[in-house]
Write a protein that binds this DNA or RNA. Structure first.
Lengths: 298, 298
DNA sequence: TAAAAATACTCCATAGGTATTTTAT
DNA sequence: ATAAAATACCTATGGAGTATTTTTA
C-alpha cells in the first residue's frame, strides 16, 4: 500500500465513527471538502468503494467496515509509539490516562493522584470513572493507559496486575446492631440494596448472597454506594460495601458495619493494561506504589 | 502521535534494516539528505534520539530498536489493507507471494502454478523457495501471502491448514533390491544420506531412524533430494525421500524404491498464513484446490 | 427547498532534489 | 584522505482552504 498515509486512515476512521462528512471533518480539524477528497483518494488507492453514497446518509460498505476496524488498530499502534518514546525517558512524563470503576474511584483516587503527582510533577493525569465494560473497551481502543478494576477481566490482549484483596462488609441499621450477624442464607431473607445493572460490584455481591440464580427475596437499587448507605441509614434495608469504602461512606451515616462470617465475600482489585503498552515498566512501578499505600492504610 | 507519517516509519524501518543512510535512501527511492531529514524529524517528533550517530556507523539506540520492531508491525498491517481491498473483489487478483520448502517445491509447484494461473489469469504469482524457518519469518514480516511447509509450525500468529499426509520411501541401490526391507533399527546400521542442516525433512527422517538422540552410525549430507538419490545410485548409501518426489527423482536414477514397514514415517504437508490475512477465504480455496489435485495424482 | 456531499480554484507548506560542508576514521 | 551524514537552498507536488454546484430526500 504505497501512497497510503496516516491522514487517509485518520480521516476514514473519523468518517466511520461519525457517519457524516461534515462532522468527521470538524473532528479532524479540517474542512468538509478536504475530507471528501482524502476519502475519494483512499478509495482510488484501494480500487474499491468504501462507502455507499446515497447523498443523505453515509453507509459503510462491507469492505469499509473491515477497513475501519483495521484502521483503528493501526492508529492505536501508532499512538503507542508516542508512549514508547516518553517511556524511554525512564521517568513517567506527559499524559497518563487512568480509568477506575465507580466502586473504587472515590476511595482510591485521592491518595493515588496525590502520590503520583508528588512523585512525577511533570505528569498530566487524566481520569475517567465508569463501569468495567467501558474501561476495557477504552483500553482496547487505546484511549486509556491503564485501568483499576476488579479482577479477573479475562481479555487476552490485556495484562492483569493484582493489587490487593478486600472483603465486603455488611451495612445495616443501627437498631439491628445487636442482632447476630447473618450468613449468606440470612441475607437472602432481607431487603438487599444493590447498585444498578452494569456495576461489577453488584454482581459480586449478588453471587455471594445467591450462588445459584436464585435472587434475594427483596431487592432495591441505587446508583452509588453513598446512596445505598444513606438508604440503609433510613431503615430501608441492608447492603454490602467494599472495605475501602467504609471510612468514607459511614462517616455521616447512622449505620452499623460488621464483617460477615465465612465464607467471607471478597474481590481482587487490580490494574489492567494492554500487553503491548510501552508503559509497562512504569505501570508496574505504579502497582508497586499502590500496594505500598494500601499496606500503610491497613 | 499526531504529525507522524507513513514515510517516517517506512524510512526509519529501511534505516534500521540497512544500518546505512545512503543504502536505506536508495532502497526508498529517495536521496540521502531527504532520508536524513525525515529521520531527524522523526526524532524531534518523538523527542528522543533513535540512533547513535558516530559518523562512521549507524547504531540503533534501545528506543530505536523497539521502534523498528513496532514500525515493521505497523507497516505490515498497512500492507495488508491492500490485500483486503483486492480480496474484497472476491476473485484472486494482483500479486500472490508463495513460499515453499525445497522438499516440496519441485514436485508441487509445477501443477500448483499451472492450475492457479489457469483459474486466475490476472494473477501475478511470485515464488520463493527456502527452508521453513525463513518462510515463517517472511510470513511474519508480511513478505509472503502464504507458505507450503511440513506441519506443525506452531506459531500463534499463523493459521495452519493441513493438505495431506505423505509417507517417506526408502531409496537404495538396485543391487540391494532383493534384500529384506529394513526397519528403523536396520536403517541405523546403514550409511544414511540426509539433507544438510536447516531442512525440516532432514530432522523428520532423522527422528524416524533414531527417536533418541542416538545418531545413525554413518551419515552423509547432500543439498537436495536429487543429489541424494544420485548418490544412492552410485552405491554410496541409502536415503529417505517423500512420496511425492519419487516419480521425479527416480526417473533417471538406477535405484530401488520401497515402502518402509510400520511404524511408517510420514509428514503432514500444509499451508500456513497469517491469521490476520484478508486473503484467508481465497487461501482456503487454494487449499481446497490442492487437495483436489493431490487426490487426482494419487 | 434544504441539507449534505462533490467540484472548482487558489495557495502555501513541505517533501524531495542538487550542491556543498562537516565530521570522524 | 575519504566515506558518510548533516546543512543550505531551491523547486514542485499536493493538502487544505473558500466559493460554488450538484444531488436527493
Amino acid at each position: 500500500m504505497i501512497g497510503l498515509t496516516m491522514k487517509h486512515l485518520r480521516y476514514f476512521e473519523a468518517l466511520s465513527r461519525y457517519g457524516h462528512f461534515g462532522r468527521a471533518a470538524e473532528a479532524c480539524g479540517i474542512s468538509q471538502p478536504a475530507l471528501s477528497l482524502q476519502i475519494k483518494e483512499l478509495e482510488d488507492l484501494l480500487g474499491a468503494p468504501l462507502i455507499e453514497r446515497s447523498a443523505r446518509q453515509v453507509r459503510m460498505s462491507g469492505l469499509g467496515e473491515e477497513l475501519a476496524v483495521r484502521a483503528r488498530q493501526i492508529l492505536s499502534s501508532v499512538d503507542e509509539l508516542g508512549d514508547l518514546a516518553r517511556a524511554s525517558s525512564g521517568t513517567l512524563t506527559g499524559r497518563l490516562r487512568i480509568g477506575v470503576i465507580p466502586t473504587i474511584a472515590p476511595y482510591m483516587l485521592p491518595t493515588l493522584v496525590k502520590e503520583l503527582g508528588a512523585r512525577n510533577p511533570e505528569l498530566d493525569i487524566r481520569l475517567r470513572e465508569t463501569v468495567t465494560q467501558t474501561l476495557i473497551r477504552n483500553l482496547g481502543e487505546g484511549r486509556l493507559d491503564f485501568a483499576v478494576v476488579a479482577l479477573p477481566v479475562s481479555e487476552t490482549a490485556l495484562h492483569e496486575e493484582p493489587l490487593f484483596d478486600e472483603e465486603f462488609m455488611l451495612v445495616r441499621s443501627l437498631k439491628d446492631a445487636d442482632k447476630p450477624v447473618p450468613n449468606a442464607d440470612g441475607l437472602r431473607e432481607m431487603r438487599l440494596l444493590l447498585l444498578e445493572e452494569g456495576h461489577c460490584f453488584r454482581d459480586q455481591a449478588l453471587s455471594f448472597c445467591s450462588p445459584t440464580t436464585l435472587a434475594p427475596r427483596d431487592l432495591m437499587e441505587g446508583s452509588s454506594l453513598s446512596t445505598l448507605v444513606q438508604m440503609v441509614g433510613a431503615g430501608i434495608g441492608v447492603t454490602l460495601i467494599p472495605e475501602m469504602s467504609v471510612a468514607t461512606e459511614t462517616r455521616s451515616a447512622e449505620v452499623s458495619v460488621v464483617r460477615l462470617p465465612a465464607p467471607r465475600p471478597k474481590r481482587t482489585v487490580g490494574m489492567v493494561w494492554r500487553k503491548s503498552s510501552p508503559l509497562a515498566p512504569q505501570l508496574n512501578g505504579i502497582a508497586h506504589m499502590i500496594r505500598g499505600l494500601s499496606r500503610k492504610a491497613a
